[in-house]
Amino acid sequence: MRLYVIIPLCALLTVTKQEHTECTCELNNSERIFPHEKLRKVESSTSDCKSNIIPQKSVELKSLLQGLEQRLTQLSNDVLILEKEDDRGLYGVLSLYLIENEMNEIKQLIDKLDSTTQEHQILAASATRQLEIMKTEMKALEKFDTMQVIKGRQTIEVLRTDLDSCKKEVKALTQRPQLPQGDFPITLLLLLSLLFLPGNVYIHTSNPTTNTIQGPNNVLYGGALYYNCYNRDAVCRFDLTTKHITTLELHQGTRYNSKANFCHLEECYPYTDLDLATDESGVWVVFTTSLDFGNMILSKVEEGEPPALGKTWQTSVYKQAVTNTFMACGVLYATRYVNQELEEIFYSFNTVTGKERFNLGIFISKISPNIQALNYSPVDQTLHVYSDSNMVYYKVILE
């Protein structure tokens, strides 16, 4: 029985002793204390800088300049009047006295303006120094941002800007219309002019080969340049990636070497026998042969290695009565010279329906008399025009 009594008593004594024991903890903060006083100092400096640079100071300088301008104008007018006066010396002294007073007042304005300018220079230098100090102090305060809150916010702002830019680009791409083939009324809007380029470029006789470009009517499409091969009735294709050149033979009897140029009543445009054009569906070539009485022929250029000549259409418009052609939505358009200020899109040929029109009556305002080359870009629905060493852009609105 004693054994059972002793054990509870020991336990009781132990518990009683633990209840009277004191426990203390020591807390060590490894983080530096944030310098609130320094932050308040930066805020105070910002307020002082803002109060020193106020709009009234710039208004004061502007008013002084306007007053000086007015007094100088008045002085100039008074001197002119004095020069024209013929009062035989009666009032000349009085006029000179007035002019002297005006000059003294102008000098006072100049002195005040000079003083104000110096004050502004001192203020600008002081503000610059304060900004540099505040910038340094804020950089030091950023070190206390151990949780990277500020840096995280900056990163979020950059990402938000990039996201907005990306959204705008996606919206522009999705809103670009996919235009079908066929007739559309056209409206031209002049966008930009006077992008000056050098004049005609002539190839030296020692250089030409069949791979050399001949004529101005060349186009870039699908990573390749299409042009009239030198001294040949063929189209050359230069691949911009592989630097490889392939050729496309045209119909028998195709005229070249300035035998079937674009023309108007006063002159012809040299080496424009072949006209390369682009639209939403690809590359086209306009030419004529000795078998078609000089009328224009339109052929589709099929992409490939080598490119091939696709479907061909014959028109009833005489090529040398045309100044230029271009394609848009599978429709061939032709222009003619009206006068030095106007060019007319007068003709169209629809490759889908085979329908021709000679009465379109769409006029182009020119900045120079002659249009040596023009081409429609399906990327931005813009008509690019080369006119007497000027590049001009017209926005094409297909209704």
Score class of each variant (00 low, 15 high):
residue 229 C to L: 10
residue 250 L to D: 02
residue 221 Y to Q: 08
residue 258 S to H: 07
residue 231 N to R: 05
residue 180 P to T: 09
residue 159 L to P: 00
residue 250 L to S: 05
residue 198 P to S: 08
residue 188 L to E: 09
residue 245 I to H: 08
residue 180 P to V: 02
residue 212 T to D: 09
residue 255 R to W: 00
residue 205 T to D: 12
residue 258 S to Y: 02
residue 243 K to Y: 12
residue 156 I to D: 05
residue 221 Y to H: 13
residue 176 R to G: 00
residue 180 P to F: 04
residue 157 E to P: 00
residue 251 H to M: 11
residue 241 T to M: 09
residue 257 N to L: 08
residue 186 I to T: 10
residue 212 T to R: 02
residue 207 N to C: 10
residue 210 T to S: 11
residue 184 F to P: 03
residue 266 E to S: 12
residue 259 K to D: 09
residue 174 T to R: 15
residue 177 P to S: 03
residue 222 G to F: 02
residue 236 C to W: 02
residue 252 Q to G: 04
residue 164 D to F: 04
residue 245 I to R: 10
residue 174 T to Y: 02
residue 173 L to F: 15
residue 264 H to D: 15
residue 245 I to Y: 01
residue 266 E to C: 04
residue 214 Q to R: 08
residue 199 G to V: 02
residue 159 L to K: 05
residue 159 L to E: 02
residue 222 G to C: 04
residue 218 N to M: 14
residue 205 T to F: 11
residue 222 G to Q: 02
residue 224 A to C: 13
residue 173 L to S: 11
residue 210 T to H: 06
residue 185 P to N: 15
residue 172 A to H: 06
residue 261 N to C: 14
residue 217 N to K: 10
residue 191 L to S: 14
residue 201 V to D: 01
residue 208 P to A: 03
residue 155 T to V: 05
residue 202 Y to Q: 12
residue 259 K to Y: 08
residue 201 V to E: 10
residue 162 D to R: 05
residue 220 L to N: 07
residue 231 N to I: 01
residue 184 F to L: 05
residue 242 T to Y: 05
residue 232 R to Q: 15
residue 194 L to V: 12
residue 264 H to I: 00
residue 185 P to R: 06
residue 256 Y to F: 15
residue 186 I to H: 09
residue 162 D to N: 10
residue 252 Q to C: 00
residue 229 C to Q: 13
residue 265 L to Q: 15
residue 202 Y to A: 11
residue 224 A to L: 07
residue 162 D to W: 01
residue 228 N to Q: 15
residue 186 I to V: 15
residue 189 L to W: 08
residue 194 L to W: 12
residue 198 P to G: 06
residue 182 G to W: 05
residue 204 H to F: 10
residue 261 N to G: 07
residue 259 K to W: 04
residue 155 T to I: 03
residue 228 N to I: 01
residue 164 D to C: 01
residue 194 L to F: 14
residue 193 S to H: 13
residue 216 P to V: 07
residue 175 Q to Y: 02
residue 237 R to F: 00
residue 193 S to D: 13
residue 167 K to L: 12
